[in-house]
Design a protein around this nucleic acid. Structure first.
Lengths: 222, 222
DNA sequence: ACCTGAACACCGTTCAAGT
DNA sequence: ACCTGAACACCGTTCAAGT
């Protein structure tokens, strides 16, 4: 389709940063973080490993671009309600769902949280705190509590996904729950008791419950 | 000192898991995570790299043992007050300070949060929530919010420390703050405003403020 | 039982050489 | 301008050989 100009047009299979990033995301999604090597990437793109360096400076830049891609897509899809509390929940859930889909983003994010794409998310949360009427002196701490919590869950989910690759997710949680259920009741009464909800809980709802708790705490500041 | 029995006594420079872990921690503390290689470790212990494998299964076990060591030491030093809210703060601060001293623990923890040594910390927090009178149905979510927040901060601190190695800490934060201060005011009003507290804040107090906010939120559950 | 150190299979990255 | 693929310096891990 369209007119083929001689110079700007490329063969459709030509290498480009976008195609490289796309392929990297596929590898990360399908085979996990350890599977992303320049050799594997080159093989998938049927090119030499050195060719990738023409489009991408190094592995850090590649990962940054992959995160940028996923996070940008996630924030674009987001329907922001008008009520600040709801919007904060929606933003947080957007991050959660993106990381649920691409767990490697979670571990990269807790390694390099200041990704450019995260700025929109950080701003979105901070802005809504202002709209919520949080006193100015409490805004920074409130914002940081929410952001750290979100990044914490992100890292946890990524860790779970790493274990989950071998077996499956519910099997992994069952194993942890079973281990906790067998802890010494004298030393670990709470963890024993929490083993059941641990096995049965819905990650997404638990995540939201945490957001709500923090928002409730923020609400107590006058 | 003491009688030298022929078989059980070893030359003081003999290899042992403890000495290996100790040396690993020194390398991690002084030169960062990327500096810990079996070759560097062997050189520091003036032995062959293969010798380490006689005492330690692989690098994962080595890292797990190093974390165990640091976390156990941190929880041992902890003076637990009698008031539940204070005790939760003390436990959280204990983790924070340990990670502040050994940032690599933070990144390992967000990769493998279910370290055995963490069980005491998890239990300590959960137990105090019960003592605080948190309704049973809210205990799991409350506990998970606190734990995820703590692990989130741990990961962040580790990430900051990675950047800080090259320059110094305040210089790094200043750079971030300066970058945020120059963001488009129309798109990022909050981040611009928050750039100043970001540069001036005390990490430890900010961390505690987050704990307090979550505890305040937990307190609203009746 | 414990240690040595060469060897193996991998990495990320570079670069002379091609088109 | 863009790509190839061998080469380099490094990993974690193994293992025959030593003591």
């Amino acid at each position: 389709m369209g007119i083929r100009t001689r110079r700007t047009e490329r063969r459709t299979d030509a290498l480009s940063k976008e195609r490289i990033v796309e392929a990297a995301i596929e590898i990360l999604d399908n085979d996990g973080e350890s599977a992303l090597t320049f050799r594997a990437l080159a093989a998938r793109l049927t090119t030499g490993s050195g060719a990738i360096y023409w489009h991408v400076a190094d592995k850090n830049e590649l990962l940054a671009a992959a995160i940028e891609d996923v996070i940008t897509r996630a924030t674009t899809d987001m329907v922001g309600g008008t009520e600040p509390r709801e919007t904060i929940r929606a933003i947080a859930l957007g991050v959660f769902d993106a990381i649920d889909l691409h767990p490697w983003v979670g571990s990269q994010l807790s390694r390099e949280p200041l990704q450019p794409a995260m700025l929109q998310i950080f701003e979105g949360i901070g802005g809504r705190l202002q709209a919520l009427g949080v006193p100015e002196r409490a805004q920074f701490d409130s914002w940081s509590a929410l952001v750290n919590y979100i990044l914490g869950v992100a890292g946890q989910n990524a860790a779970n996904a790493r274990h989950t690759r071998e077996t499956d997710r519910s099997a992994f949680l069952s194993t942890v729950a079973a281990r906790w259920a067998q802890l010494d009741p004298a030393k670990y009464p709470f963890l024993r008791q929490v083993a059941t909800p641990m096995r049965e809980h819905d990650d997404r709802e638990q995540f939201l419950a945490g957001i709500d708790l923090i928002l409730a705490g923020i609400g107590t500041v006058r």
